[in-house]
């Protein structure tokens, strides 16, 4: 658990993070969104003391982070940044091994860990272990960057626009991988982005920032339905609201009995994808399958119902 209490950061009299308090529950993903310059990066960097706050307190699992030497604190917190920041003079394996090595792990344990992480990110260890970072694609570099951040098994992972430099397809894949890894490892993740779509897709909770202030910190559905300020509403985009709401819900939760024709929709697809599919194929209902088994149908009416503002 990360408790941020009345934190302030000023540079030469300009306040860039303005009395922010928020509590990030363990094993969840919180996404910080906001326009450029709103203080997202500064807020996140105060969690691993890359930036020292002007005032306020941050506690991790009850412990004030000022009670730990900064470099030791950082070894316990994974940190992944845009453009990956891999060490260009080290191989992939050396990069991933950075923190375990700083922590003085045994060689054999480090090697096993490197291979395990490469496997986790679907990169063949034999093929990638000894490559230099510049011999990787952007997507691969990004994965190694996250693998390095996770190498010592941190409870907390901070990510500053980790997918900012990726093309849309690779980006979507990276998001899915991150969700899968988060579910598997139970890591508490704080992710910064200025893409509301990404925030809604990834976040258990979303923190919206503007001009150094925290405007709202809530679950995605709450932010969409009850934006705290006009700025938050703008950020979501009023015309996108129904679709953003649909994207939060899985088809499997709204299956009805009956039969329908045409290509089936997977139960774990989002209602938004189902809605889009139905509109595009001109159907009012489509069969739903889970693991290849037909389990019912999803209807256009159900989608429309879910897209409406909850009363």
């Amino acid at each position: 658990m990360i408790e941020i209490e009345d934190i302030v950061k000023s540079y030469n009299g300009t306040t860039v993070v303005d009395h922010i308090s928020l509590t990030i529950p363990p094993r969840t993903m919180s996404v910080i969104v906001g326009t450029s310059g709103s203080g997202k990066t500064t807020l996140m960097r105060m969690i691993n003391r890359l930036v020292e706050p002007t005032a306020g307190t941050i506690r991790i699992d009850g412990e004030d982070i000022r009670d730990v030497p900064a470099h030791e604190l950082r070894r316990r917190i994974g940190y992944a940044i845009q453009g990956h920041g891999l060490f260009p003079h080290w191989t992939v394996a050396q990069n991933i091994a950075t923190v375990p090595k700083l922590l003085g792990w045994e060689k054999s344990k480090i090697e096993a860990r490197v291979d395990e992480l490469l496997g986790l990110f679907q990169l063949d260890p034999a093929q990638f272990r000894n490559r230099m970072p510049h011999e990787l694609s952007g997507g691969q570099q990004q994965r190694i960057g996250v693998a390095r951040a996770l190498a010592a098994g941190p409870n907390i992972l901070l990510m500053d626009e980790p997918f900012g430099a990726l093309d849309p397809l690779i980006r979507a894949k990276a998001q899915e991988d991150l969700l899968a890894i988060q579910r598997k490892l139970g890591t508490t993740i704080v992710l910064v982005t200025h893409d509301m779509e990404e925030a809604i897709h990834l976040g258990d909770r979303i923190a919206v920032m503007d001009k150094g202030k925290l405007l709202q910190y809530a679950e995605p559905a709450e932010i969409i339905v009850n934006p705290a300020t006009p700025f938050v509403a703008d950020l979501i985009g009023t015309s996108d609201r129904p679709f953003r709401l649909l994207s939060l819900t899985r088809v499997g939760d709204h299956v009805e009995t009956g039969t329908a024709t045409g290509s089936p929709i997977a139960a774990d697809a989002s209602l938004r994808d189902a809605y889009s599919d139905l509109l595009w194929s001109g159907r009012t209902a489509a069969p739903v399958t889970r693991d290849g088994q037909a389990i019912g149908i999803i209807t256009l009416a159900a989608c429309a119902r879910m897209a409406a503002r909850p009363q």
């Binding site: 030791e72 604190l73 940190y79 940044i81 453009g83 990956h84 920041g85 891999l86 260009p88 923190v99």
Partner: peptide, 18 residues
């Protein structure tokens, strides 16, 4: 030096000397 590499070096918890 590339700023994001230096940033990463700080972020992984290297001391100044490291």
């Amino acid at each position: 030096l590339p700023p994001n590499v230096i940033e990463a070096a700080r972020g992984v918890g290297m001391t100044g000397r490291q």
